[in-house]
């Protein structure tokens, strides 16, 4: 399951019209829009705030829709829980004895926000792939150690996933009907064994990296070019944020 998801993700990366845009610009614009939407709390402002995310959704036409909808389905798993849980625990007038009307409104508002915040972040930042995110972090002057950690973690996820799957299969064959404490002990020992193996492996990997010339040659991100196109995109996103803030303030003062 893990490897499949990662493969799908990597294949889908770098297949968008947005790939021509500088990764720094993509990250800045996505976060600018997401923060602005997070600050909105009225239906009118959210309706206005939904325009740009919906336009972004249409950028690559039908080609990218299935992938983005699959990602949004993943994001919306929590929505069911919110729709049930929030009306039960939120104050306000009760409908059908248990459910709060205000809680229901709040749940719908949160799910709406969740989706329109997720669209720009998924479309502009997450869809760059790990290498794209690494390039963006490098261009935004994030520490080299953090970028190395990101790339190496991604690499070792595959390695340890295989090892854990093998040990999980062995565990099921050894004792298929485990109960109570026995289960927790078996899982704890499995994770413990993975940690010990990973430590041994890390030791050898560190030596191998040292032989290849150390971390200095590990990741050299592409040189980024910031042109009028990036300035224009930033201007559109910042203008949109300013308009949304103005709408929100006007609604509050009315």
């Amino acid at each position: 399951m893990i490897l499949d998801s990662v493969r799908i993700f990597e294949e889908c990366a770098c297949k968008s019209r947005l790939d021509a845009v500088d990764p720094r610009c993509r990250v800045i614009c996505a976060f600018c829009l997401a923060v602005t939407i997070a600050a909105l709390d009225s239906v009118h402002a959210l309706a206005a705030g939904s325009v740009l995310p919906l336009l972004l959704l249409c950028i690559d036409g039908r080609r990218s829709m299935p992938r983005i909808f699959r990602m949004l389905a993943g994001v919306n798993k929590v929505s069911v829980l919110v729709l049930f849980f929030l009306p039960l625990t939120y104050p306000g007038d009760r409908v059908l004895v248990f459910f709060s009307a205000d809680g229901m409104k709040m749940a719908i508002l949160i799910i709406w926000k969740l989706n329109i915040i997720s669209i720009p972040l998924l479309k502009m930042a997450a869809s760059m792939g790990i290498t794209g995110i690494n390039d963006a972090l490098a261009a935004l002057h994030f520490p080299v150690k953090l970028r190395m950690l990101l790339l190496l973690t991604m690499r070792y996820v595959f390695l340890l996933a295989d090892r854990m799957a093998t040990m999980g299969r062995a565990l099921c064959l050894r004792s298929p009907r485990m109960k109570g404490m026995q289960t927790y002990k078996a899982y704890a020992c499995m994770v413990g064994t993975t940690l010990v193996h990973s430590s041994d492996r890390a030791e050898r990997a560190a030596l191998a990296i040292g032989c290849r010339g150390g971390m200095s040659g590990f990741s050299r991100p592409d040189r980024q070019v910031w042109t009028w196109r990036e300035w224009a995109l930033c201007a559109i996103f910042f203008l949109n944020s300013a308009c949304l803030a103005a709408i929100s303030i006007t609604r509050m003062s009315l």
């Binding site: 973690t153 340890l160 996933a161 854990m164 993975t194 940690l195 990973s198 890390a202």
Partner: peptide, 18 residues
């Protein structure tokens, strides 16, 4: 120590799938 930390980070990542 980056390699060792990244291994532990991978285990944390994978733990959510057990």
């Amino acid at each position: 120590r980056i390699v060792r930390v990244s291994m532990a980070s991978s285990v944390f990542f994978l733990a959510s799938l057990i």
